[in-house]
Amino acid sequence: MYEFEFEKPSTIADAVKALGEEDAQALGGGQTLIPTLKQRLAMPSTLVSLSGIAEMRGVCPDGDAIAIGGATTHAEVEAATADSYPALSALAGQIGDPAVRNRGTIGGSLANNDPSACYPAAALASGATIVTNAREIAADDYFQGLFTTALDEGEIITNVRMPVPQAAHYEKFVQPASRFALVGVFVARFADGVRVAVTGASEEGVFRWSEAEAALAGNFDPAAIDGLSVDAEGMIGDLHGTKAYRAHLVGVITKRAVAAAA
C-alpha cells in the first residue's frame, strides 16, 4: 500500500469535511478497498473511516420500508432484518464469508457497485432510496454501470431506505472461489407490480429485466418466464462462464427466485 493519512470522524458533517480534502477517500468496511490498496490500484491521500459514525449504523422500521444506516455491516443487516425483510436478511447472510460480513457494509457495497455484488440487486429490486449527506437518489437513477454510481466526489451514503415487498427472494448462483454472484436475481412483488434485478451477468452492472417484470406482474409463477431470454450480447464473458451461459443462467435463476418467493 502507498502511504495515506487516517481519520475517523464521529459525525457525518466531520466526515464530509474530511472528504473535501484533495484525494481523500471514504473507507467503509474495507473488504474491497483494502485489497485494492494492497494492489496499489488506488492512492488516496487520506482514508476517512465511516465506522465511527453512530448515526450511520443500525436498522430501523420506516413506515412500509426499513431504513439501514450506510455503515451497517452485512452481519448486522442479516440479524436485524430476519423478521422484517427475510429475503434481504438471507442475501446479507450469503455475502463473502462470516469474517467479511463482520466488516463489510451496505453503504460500501452500494458505493462500489461491483457488477457481481449482491446488494445492488436488492436495492434495485426493492426500489430503494439511496440517502446521502446531500440528497436522496432513487435506485433506478443510482446505478450507472460498472463500478459507476450517481454519487459525487466525497458524497457519503448515510442511509438506504428499502420498501419491503409482499413477497421476495434473492437467488444467487455462487462463483465458488470468490463467493460473488456468477448470476444473482432478486425478485420482489409489490401491490403495484413486480421488480426483477439481475447482478453478476451484465457488463453494465446490475439491471432490471423488464420483460420478466411484465410477465410476472400478470402471473407470478416461474412458468411466466418460459420463452423469455436476455440477449447474450452485453453479458459478461470470462473464464467462469461465457456470455451465452450467463444469459441462460439469468432465466434459470429468475425462475428459481420466483418459485422460492411465490
Binding site: K8, G30, S49, S51, A75, A99, R103
Partner: peptide, 12 residues
C-alpha cells in the same frame, strides 16, 4: 466478532 486481520487497518 471474527475478522480477517489482514483486511482491517490497525487504526480502526
Amino acid at each position: 466478532k471474527a475478522v480477517k486481520s489482514c483486511t482491517m487497518l490497525a487504526a480502526e
